[in-house]
Design a protein around this nucleic acid. Structure first.
Lengths: 202, 202
DNA sequence: TTGGAATTCGAACGTTCGTTCGGGAGCCCC
DNA sequence: GGGGCTCCCGAACGAACGTTCGAATTCCAA
């Protein structure tokens, strides 16, 4: 990674922060310039325009999420464990990259043309990854598609209320959301956490 | 309701549609004028400015949701049934008022001053309503606060993917989300839908 | 030391923004 | 029939927007 790429990364990080705070349309290029320590005109040396700023944030963020999720899922043996790993990775990544993930979740429809198509393709890939995991669970209690979008809703909505530095550690949040989802989607009697086993065993 | 209020309602409905399509900051007052059939200047006879347009949409929508939820919840006897009624009402209302609810969910942070405070108070009231319902469930499997925000995430996220005129009726969507949430939050062995009862009964 | 590419920026461009202004219809009550 | 409302709009305002341009500065290989 040469100097150009490093400076571009700084710029994208600053832009993500500004976009997360004020929204894409609510933020101005002058805001980005101020936050990044660059001049207004200097930004255009690294980026073709405001829309490319948003595109690069979303595209790189999606690429990192997908790669990380594949790695996390691949290390697990059972379908339920793979789903739990998927959820844990998504939440931990979200908590570690709040600005970028908020921009990814909140500014979905602001791109146009080729950039829009490319980010949409990434999203489809990520959704399909989860749908494939859900397929492995026997006897689901709700439809796969609704379950997938409901899960993404639970997870992505955290940008409206969750603060990584607050009272709830991200790992705990991930476990609770995984328990909530798996308890509702998968068949009852999960070996580890279910109190069903305990009550029937006693 | 006199003529002024009726015309204002039309204006707010048009504005909600425009804000839902292009986002609050991405939409211009000229867009609102075009959509409502009014002139640009004519809008200011009904509203003090763009921000009041957003405020009135959100405030009235929240008031209707809260009132409707109270009515739906009050008709049920058990804690779980009250939660199910809450979810069903939220989803059905969402599907029936997509534009307004998308604006409510997506443009949360765009108000300022007194208007922001008033909408936030409404939101707090609505969240507290759900938290109270969750309190009635014995032996919850995840923390109340996380469960509440996760449920709102599932429900509000539908504006990113759900189309009321599509293949999934709103009532079915509501049942699936209720089953997903209650299966994960409440204790197992729900009398109505659980396949646990069936398998143990057979 | 020098030439050229990479990097940076002040200043300005044309456009669009939210809002305002002054006035013109339509209407009702005195 | 005239004064005072409500309702509505064309035109314009100043500000802010994304972007561009020409030049200054920095940097490194020759």
């Amino acid at each position: 990674m040469d100097g150009f790429d490093r400076r571009l990364q700084q710029l994208l990080a600053s832009a993500a922060k500004v976009f997360a705070e004020r929204g894409y349309h609510g933020a101005s290029m002058r805001d980005v310039a101020r936050a990044s320590g660059m001049s207004l005109a200097g930004i255009y040396h690294y980026v073709r325009g405001k829309q490319e700023l948003l595109f690069l944030i979303q595209d790189r963020c999606f690429a990192a999420v997908i790669a990380g999720a594949r790695g996390a899922v691949g290390a697990e043996a059972t379908p339920v464990d793979r789903i739990r790993a998927f959820i844990r990775h998504h939440i931990l990544f979200f908590a570690a990259h709040m600005d970028e993930m908020k921009v990814l979740a909140h500014e979905e429809e602001e791109l146009s043309g080729t950039m829009r198509a490319q980010v949409r393709a990434r999203k489809r890939e990520y959704v399909n990854l989860l749908l494939g995991l859900l397929d492995g669970v026997p006897g689901p209690r709700v439809s796969r598609r609704v379950a997938a979008y409901a899960l993404f809703g639970m997870m992505n909505w955290i940008y409206t209320w969750y603060h990584p530095t607050g009272a709830i550690p991200a790992a705990q949040l991930a476990e609770e959301i995984a328990a909530l989802f798996l308890g509702g989607y998968a068949e009852p009697a999960l070996p580890a956490t279910s109190r069903l086993v305990a009550s029937h065993g006693g």
